[in-house]
Nucleic acid binder design. Structure first.
Length: 270
DNA sequence: GACAACCTGACC
DNA sequence: GGTCAGGTTGTC
């Protein structure tokens, strides 16, 4: 589900309530394909103190006091939601974390693509090294430079590649292309320096605006309070196929690019 | 670069 | 019944 603004919203909310707490117990409700929930996994986590909650690209990282980290990828439908003590597990709930101080957190994942993985420092460093720059932590020029030779042809495909720029997904790739007036299938080699910079600025702009509204709930996404992101009402092309372009009234088109649904204005984007 | 795979549910 | 869904990975 979530892209950078959604994962960052969850990171912030988790950090407020989890940092400094101790994992007192873990209840496994359902074993998942991608989620190791053996006795070893549980035993390794119980008693650990959570030092910090960080995010890199779309990956959440719980740094623990034993030099290891619990990484979580939400993929399409993963969720962390805080619950009360009388909470009864719902259909797709997978496990419950009980933290010191009485905090209870549920990990749920309808489609089971997401994963929790316990990794040591060295493994984590390898994982994090794969990602491109964090788009909100570098200058636009740095992002623009990443688009010079990304090893792929189409603009949108490059934006979705986490090794090129970290954290951009299907919604914000489309939104950034629209804001920059660049066609999503445009050949990267045809972009001029000015185009790349405009696209880089558009990426930052849309991510910042979405983050300020706690992300986009196109379908399932909710934050740790079960609340939806408000940026859905501000999308300009995503999920607006056949609706008039907000600039020129031409119907927004939807095509497939790199196997992903892609929305754009055929007039405003070239 | 295309395509299938992982899985469940919503919608036409 | 078929198609599609905020992601990623592996195989031609």
């Amino acid at each position: 589900m979530p892209e950078l603004p959604e994962v960052e919203t969850i990171r912030y909310q988790l950090a407020l309530r989890l940092e400094g707490t101790k994992i007192e117990d873990i209840v496994i409700w359902k074993t998942g394909r991608e989620t190791p929930v053996g006795r070893e996994f549980v035993q390794s986590l119980i008693g650990r103190k959570i030092q910090t909650i960080e995010r890199r690209a779309k990956l959440l990282i719980w740094r623990l006091d034993d030099d290891r980290a619990l990484t979580a990828h939400l993929k399409m439908t993963g969720r962390f939601v805080f619950v009360n003590t009388d909470y009864q597990p719902a259909k797709h709930d997978r496990m419950l974390f009980q933290l010191s101080g009485g905090t209870r957190l549920v990990w749920a994942d309808m489609r089971q693509f997401g994963f929790l993985r316990l990794v040591d420092q060295e493994t984590l460093d390898c994982i994090l090294d794969m990602y491109g720059p964090e788009p909100l932590e570098v200058e636009p020029a740095v992002l623009a430079e990443r688009l010079v030779k990304p090893g792929t042809r189409k603009v949108k495909v490059a934006l979705l590649n986490q090794e090129v720029i970290a954290g951009v997904g299907n919604i914000y790739a489309d939104e950034a292309c629209f804001r920059a007036g660049i066609h999503p299938t445009r050949n990267l080699g045809s972009l001029k320096q000015d185009d790349r910079l405009r696209l880089a600025q558009a990426i930052q702009e849309v991510l910042r605006e979405s983050l300020a509204r706690k992300g986009t709930s196109a379908r399932q996404y909710v934050d740790t309070m079960g609340s939806r992101g408000a940026f859905k009402d501000f999308l300009r092309v995503y999920a607006r196929a056949k609706q008039p372009c907000l600039i020129c009234q031409t119907p927004i088109e939807k095509i497939l690019v790199g196997q992903r649904g892609t929305h754009f204005c055929p007039v405003c984007q070239r």
